[in-house]
């Protein structure tokens, strides 16, 4: 799954109720990506995509997590206002599951205003499971 997949595209995923179970086959879900196989032939630039995820109810069980802002100039946003989010442990690998500003010159925003967030199976006491690229912008807000 990719939310905001193509260059300069926008994807929205809104969970209002029910249950989502996602392993995404081994890698964090790109939220705000902008990749195209047609970049070389057709001149589409990478990036500049927007992906928004709203969790306002229900449960999201995501073993592989999220990359917020997965290519240059892309924006990935997750807002949790209610419901339950459970991230990890990764089924296929050991990479960090939550990457806020996952690529150079990208931006990731994570806002939690309600609900429950559980981070499971992170490797060690000093490993939070959260990561940001050094040249990216990351905002994590708990209101």
């Amino acid at each position: 799954m990719i939310v905001g997949s193509g260059p300069a595209s926008r994807g929205e995923f809104k969970l209002l109720g029910g249950d989502v179970i996602s392993s995404n086959h081994g890698s964090p879900i790109p939220i705000g990506y902008g990749y195209s196989a047609y970049t070389v032939c057709c001149g589409y630039p990478y990036g500049s995509a927007t992906g928004n995820v709203l969790i306002a109810g229900g449960t999201w069980t995501g073993y592989e997590g999220w990359n917020l802002g997965a290519l240059s100039n892309s924006l990935g946003t997750v807002v949790v206002s209610n419901g339950t989010v459970s991230i990890g442990p990764g089924i296929y690998g050991s990479g960090k599951p939550i990457n806020v500003g996952a690529s150079d010159d990208s931006r990731g925003d994570f806002t939690m205003a309600g609900g429950t967030f559980l981070m499971n199976g992170v490797g060690s006491a000093s490993d939070t499971g959260w990561r940001s690229e050094s040249a990216a912008t990351a905002w994590v807000t708990c209101e």
């Binding site: 990719i2 997949s5 260059p7 300069a8 595209s9 926008r10 109720g17 029910g18 086959h25």
Partner: peptide, 30 residues
């Protein structure tokens, strides 16, 4: 499953998914 992909992976696409009940299982690759 690509949400907002543009035609054939092109640009300027828009997609929206809303789930309000039931069970959604995603094991698609990225």
């Amino acid at each position: 499953m690509d949400i907002g992909s543009g035609y054939k992976g092109g640009q300027n696409g828009y997609g929206q998914v809303i789930i309000s009940n039931g069970l959604f299982v995603n094991n698609s690759g990225s």
